[in-house]
């Protein structure tokens, strides 16, 4: 019993990170129909930039804030120099561009930072809290709480503000959005900025637990993509639920079967969704683009 609780907690912790990556996917996909495979690199940049700024003597909170800004800058640059010029190209072309951008960012990170693993200090120490026989790192709670806060913030923006409505309108009908005076390119740029910020925060929150290195983005992008597919591409609720479910599936799979196949679970989920329910759990639109 304590074991199962342990699996659940660690599953939810990684799941929260997958959920944030998936939410980043969803925001960009909704505003622009782009599936951004460089989403994982945002997470990497958040963690790595914080680590290296901190090493350079910047106090941690400041380093984290700067890392988020840097990542947002990278997100905007990605849009302005790689995605926007390819406007009107096929979905496949744009996916290849984002995969290229992800490889490029990894390469740059390898040069600017290094190829080793790095950690950040735990916010509230690393003495586990005992709940029902399970040991939980305080940082896990930080991850869960932080992710919850971000998700709530994004839902508030989308649901309660005119800006959020404009994002939905841009996604639904670009021509009509332009005709009412919504600057659709700025809206799409904003979605890249928001996604980058979400990714960076996820990286900063989770690095104390999982460590980070220049290449953690690849697998995270895949996991986030699997989570978004599971939840239904384009559904923000789906992204969050999909992320948590994937995290739990991995954790229980690793604990009860074998940790060897942990990373295969995401692939199985992608395949399963494609065969059984292409629109995912919460998806409305058919996924004719995939």
């Amino acid at each position: 019993m304590p074991e199962l609780l342990q699996f659940a907690f660690s599953g939810l912790t990684v799941g929260a990170v997958y959920a944030l990556v998936a939410l980043g996917f969803t925001l960009i996909y909704n505003a622009s129909d782009v599936v951004n495979f460089a989403q994982g690199e945002f997470v990497m940049l958040g963690g790595m930039a914080t680590v290296f700024l901190h090493l350079a003597g910047v106090p941690l909170p400041m380093a984290a804030a700067l890392a988020i800004l840097i990542t947002v800058g990278v997100g905007l640059a990605l849009y302005a120099f790689a995605i926007d010029p390819a406007r009107g190209s096929s979905a496949v072309t744009i996916i290849i561009i984002t995969i290229g951008a992800s490889i490029f960012l990894r390469g740059v990170a390898q040069v600017v930072f290094d190829k080793r693993f790095h950690a950040l200090p735990h916010w509230f120490g690393s003495d586990p809290i005992r709940i029902g026989g399970a040991a939980i790192l305080p940082q896990s709670l930080v991850v869960l709480f932080g992710a919850g806060l971000i998700v709530a913030l994004i839902f508030l923006i989308i649901d309660r503000t005119l800006l959020g409505r404009a994002i939905l309108a841009t996604a639904a009908n670009r021509l009509a959005a332009r005709l009412v005076g919504i600057p659709v390119r700025k809206i799409v740029a904003l979605s890249f900025a928001l996604s980058a910020a979400i990714g960076a925060v996820a990286g900063i929150l989770v690095t104390p637990i999982t460590l980070t290195s220049y290449d953690v983005g690849t697998l995270l992008a895949l996991k986030g993509f699997a989570a978004a597919m599971l939840g239904g591409m384009g559904s923000a609720v789906g992204a969050v639920v999909g992320g948590l479910l994937l995290g739990l599936a991995e954790s229980f799979g690793a604990g009860l079967i074998s940790s060897k196949y942990k990373d295969a679970i995401a692939f199985l989920i992608i395949l399963g969704v494609l065969f059984v329910r292409p629109q995912g759990l919460f998806g409305k639109r058919s996924v004719e683009r995939v």
Binding site: R165, L168, A169, A172, A176, L179
Partner: peptide
């Protein structure tokens, strides 16, 4: 007022 109305149907 565009051809085909082009309203935001989901909103």
């Amino acid at each position: 007022v565009p051809e085909g109305r082009q309203i935001f149907g989901g909103l």
